[in-house]
């Protein structure tokens, strides 16, 4: 019997989708600015600039709010992988992606209110939210005031290191977004993850109700255990 668990509170969902919308605007406008071509304008340069600036400022404010929310609510703990689970958890996740999913095996872990993320998610989100995002925002803000950049740095324009760093991190986050959306289809069903991020509720695997997931936080993580549940 399928059951539902409430996992993602409203503030987290609102933050997630606002963040997603801003990131998509930033990626589209950033792509358009970087690969600007008068013959093939994705978004007109001046419009893309405005979109990028406004979204960038909004993202910075949102990120600050997120830091506060995440700290105050204690949600930040969700991002820290347990050292004991790191290797086994990553192995289980990799085995699922590389093989289990093709055999119809259930995911090695399912989200619970106590442990929303699997180890791969924890490690990735920790890097994305606490390393890449600050880096992106700081280079973005610095880029916002190009007149303050040194005229020359190491024999090159002073803006160059900032611009390249911003571009590299923006690119990596674009790859993350692609992977994130795709991994979103790897839940108990292809849409379960998306539904959960909209409603806050997680529907457990409709096809394997025999063994409900452990909600104590110690979800089954090994592919063999997961396999048993299939």
């Amino acid at each position: 019997m399928a059951s539902r668990v409430y996992i993602i509170p409203l503030w987290l969902r609102l933050w997630h989708w606002t963040n997603a919308a801003l990131m998509i605007l930033l990626m589209a406008s950033g792509f358009s600015l970087h690969f600007s071509d008068p013959d093939l304008p994705l978004i007109r340069f001046d419009i893309a600039r405005t979109i990028h600036n406004v979204s960038g400022i909004a993202l910075t404010v949102l990120y600050m709010a997120y830091l506060v929310w995440n700290t105050v609510s204690g949600n930040w703990r969700q991002y820290v992988p347990a050292a004991s689970e790191l290797i086994s958890g990553l192995n289980a996740q990799n085995a699922y992606v590389a093989s289990g999913i093709f055999k119809g095996a259930p995911p090695p872990t399912v989200p619970t209110p106590e442990k929303k993320f699997n180890v791969l998610q924890q490690a990735t989100y920790l890097l994305v939210m606490y390393v890449a995002m600050p880096f992106l925002i700081v280079t973005g803000i610095a880029f916002f005031f190009p007149e303050l950049a040194p005229e020359q740095l190491f024999g090159m324009d002073g803006l160059l290191p900032l611009a390249v760093a911003h571009y590299v991190i923006g690119f990596l986050l674009t790859l993350f977004l692609l992977g994130h959306i795709y991994m979103g289809t790897m839940g108990t069903t292809a849409l379960a993850g998306f539904k959960m991020m909209i409603t806050g509720w997680h529907d457990e695997h409709p096809g394997h109700a025999g063994q409900p997931p452990d909600r104590t936080g110690a979800s089954p993580t090994s592919p063999t255990e997961g396999g048993k549940r299939a």
């Binding site: 690969f35 600007s36 340069f45 024999g155 090159m156 324009d157």
Partner: peptide, 9 residues
């Protein structure tokens, strides 16, 4: 040009 200025695009 990079030695002289970073020009977006």
């Amino acid at each position: 040009i990079l030695n002289e200025a970073y020009v977006i695009g």
